[in-house]
């Protein structure tokens, strides 16, 4: 499989009054799932479209394995893209849609049946596209992207319209594809889903890069790490017991304390020693959503 590293460098798209993408640079590594995150209107879709030479950048470049998309001799065998859920002729069957793509890409027609099997759409293959649910359309889009067995997958909001089972199916599919060494770049605004799926994240807001890196690094870089939520009828007594253990305690009122700097085990032991009753003791991990909102706060989605 050829080197499928995506390199975006100084990418800019200026519309008449709006700079949709503003000097954006990031890289996407093979063998990993990279989440491309940002509020609505952050320039995610425009960036992906520039990567695929559908939109001409005002300046900057985007390359796949060192080549511009338009320069790839057989693009379908290098890159598979899922950009729009509804992207087939309403009156054509799913199988014929894929077959038309096979013919255009010079692939054997049997690939259509193989990818239908891969996405679990075989039973609906001979139904017309207009009868497909949103979830089935997403699966057909993914099937079309997989026709050329590409080293790179680019997906724009692929979880839209999928039910919980569909989302889990897609997560496993994309993780599996990355494990085979493929590059998987997937845009989304479903942050919990991204935390479960992505290895790396690229966060953009208002057309600019905000943060890039492995999910864990990005999350920990902005938060003080875990903290423990404690609920007790005797908050002041517990606060006193935790003095001198290196804990920073914040009272949330109503007997609830947020404790940082020590583990739940240390708090439990201290409470036991001080004879304080605990009703709840829960470790809170910082999550992507919190960090994301912190990073993109105040960067208006509607410009």
């Amino acid at each position: 499989m050829s080197d499928g590293r995506i390199v975006v460098s100084g990418l800019t798209k200026q519309y008449r009054t709006v700079t949709a993408v503003d000097d954006l640079s990031f890289t996407v590594e093979p063998g990993r799932v990279t989440g491309f995150l940002g509020p609505n209107g952050a320039g995610k879709t425009t960036s992906l479209r520039m990567l695929l030479d559908l939109v001409v950048p005002t300046s900057g470049t985007a390359t796949i394995g060192g080549h511009r998309y338009v320069d790839l001799p057989e693009p379908t065998r290098v890159v598979g893209a899922v950009l729009e859920a509804s992207a087939a002729h309403a009156g054509r069957t799913g199988r014929n849609h894929l077959r038309a793509n096979c013919i255009a890409a010079g692939l054997p027609l049997s690939r259509a049946d193989e990818v239908l099997e891969l996405v679990g759409l075989t039973p609906a293959a001979d139904r017309k596209f207009k009868g497909y649910s949103l979830g089935m359309r997403q699966r057909l889009g993914i099937a079309a992207a997989m026709l050329g067995d590409p080293a790179v997958l680019v997906l724009d909001e692929p979880a839209n319209g999928l039910d919980p089972e569909g989302i889990r199916w897609m997560r496993e599919l994309l993780r599996g594809l990355a494990a085979e060494g493929r590059t998987v770049l997937v845009s989304s605004h479903l942050l919990n889903e991204m935390q479960a799926l992505a290895d790396d994240v690229v966060i953009v807001a208002a057309g600019r890069l905000v943060r890039q890196g492995p999910v864990a690094d990005v999350v920990s870089s902005l938060s003080d790490g875990d903290h423990v939520e404690v609920f007790t009828p005797e908050p002041e007594k517990l606060r006193a017991a935790l003095q001198g253990l290196g804990a920073s305690v914040t009272a949330d009122g109503g007997g609830s304390l947020a404790v940082a700097g020590v583990t739940a085990a240390v708090i439990g032991r201290a409470a036991h020693a001080a004879d304080v009753v605990l009703h709840q003791l829960r470790t809170e991990h910082p999550d992507l959503e919190e960090v994301f909102l912190q990073l993109t706060h105040g960067k208006a989605a509607i410009r």
Partner: peptide, 11 residues
């Protein structure tokens, strides 16, 4: 809305 698919297949 197949223009995207068409031009992705053949840039």
């Amino acid at each position: 809305q197949t223009a995207t698919t068409t031009f992705v297949l053949t840039p």
